[in-house]
Design a protein around this nucleic acid. Structure first.
Lengths: 188, 188
DNA sequence: GTTTACCTATCTATCGATAGGGAGACAATG
DNA sequence: CATTGTCTCCCTATCGATAGATAGGTAAAC
């Protein structure tokens, strides 16, 4: 069943999610169509419906897969081997490399901005992503009780998400770097 | 010609922009259709095309109108009668009331997040919005040469835009307040 | 023989966009 | 005053493309 590739790509379902995520991160939920995905994956649109009956199912699956990947990438928020600053740097690095490697911003930033028009299951998955990431950041901030901790998780996540939008819209990655530096400077 | 209402709403073109903006801020560029707008305004979709031949025209017009409104709302960034903090508070207030009154986030945050899928004229209008707002904020920050100014315009705009997404997606306005407080605290 | 994973074929709804017509306002002309 | 032409702003009607979704068939795997 499971193939033996070096990545986690296993079967068409996984390929579908991969393609769908890329399109959603570029243009939002409406930017993906069953036909486009099918063509790119090499099957027919009816076969995409076999794996994900409704578009809302596909959207929720994409967000859940994305959430798991991000949480895995940022690592443990309470490992005493690294400092708060190192942990937040890791968080920033995940987004920085996503922008550099793929040229895409955070999936849940794109979808979160259009929450009001999203099918409920998708909106809930996006909300869960932010809840998880906020919790991770809170833990990362408070693990070493910290000296004069004033920065909050919401401030850090807000800054990062907004910086991606700003950099993308103005085609100026400097805004992201600038904001990232500000976050790190406010930590020690 | 010009009617005599108490607001600036003048004619169908203005009504179209109003409705289109509301839909775009809720669900992005693809969330508006000529038919929906027409129905809401009380005309036919062909008449919407009369005012805005292509959808890209409509999108660009909506963004330009929005840009002018925001810039007017935040006022002068270099009036020596108010402090830096007062100016930034005004900027925050504009977005806060937008979220409270309309339940909608910044138009250019929604569109900026899907920049890669936007018609060029719309993407350029969004980019111009951010350039203008960044310039406004830089001026607002540096007018009184400031003591230990470390906060940059990009950091403030990023935080605000991201905070709106975060608050909307999690249905928790506290995240916006939290971020807004952090911005103000970092200024003096 | 049941399940999995694809297929063909097709449905209805909606999209942006266009062609061409009509009613009213208005200015110029006689 | 009455007529004429033009311009604005809306209309009806329709086009082709694309959307999500479904019914039912097929071939291989277990």
């Amino acid at each position: 069943m499971e193939n033996t590739e070096h990545t986690a790509l296993t079967g068409k379902a996984e390929e579908i999610l991969e393609v769908a995520e890329r399109h959603m991160r570029a243009g939002g939920f409406d930017a993906v169509s069953f036909r486009d995905i099918a063509t790119e994956v090499g099957i027919k649109s009816a076969s995409v419906h076999y794996h994900f009956p409704q578009k809302a199912d596909l959207g929720a699956a994409v967000v859940q897969r994305y959430t798991a990947r991000v949480i895995a990438a940022v690592g443990a928020p309470d490992n005493s081997d690294d400092s708060t600053k190192e942990r937040i740097s890791r968080l920033i690095g995940v987004y920085r490399s996503a922008m550099i490697d793929d040229g895409l911003i955070c999936l849940c930033c794109v979808l979160g901005a259009e929450t009001l028009d999203l099918p409920d299951p998708v909106a809930e998955a996006v909300s869960s992503f932010f809840a998880l990431v906020l919790k991770w950041t809170e833990t990362a901030l408070s693990a070493p009780p910290a000296a004069g901790e004033t920065t909050t998780a919401a401030q850090i996540i807000s800054s990062l998400q907004g910086a991606m939008v700003l950099s993308l819209a103005t085609k100026n990655p400097q805004h992201f770097s600038d904001t990232a530096n500000g976050i790190l400077k406010a930590i020690d």
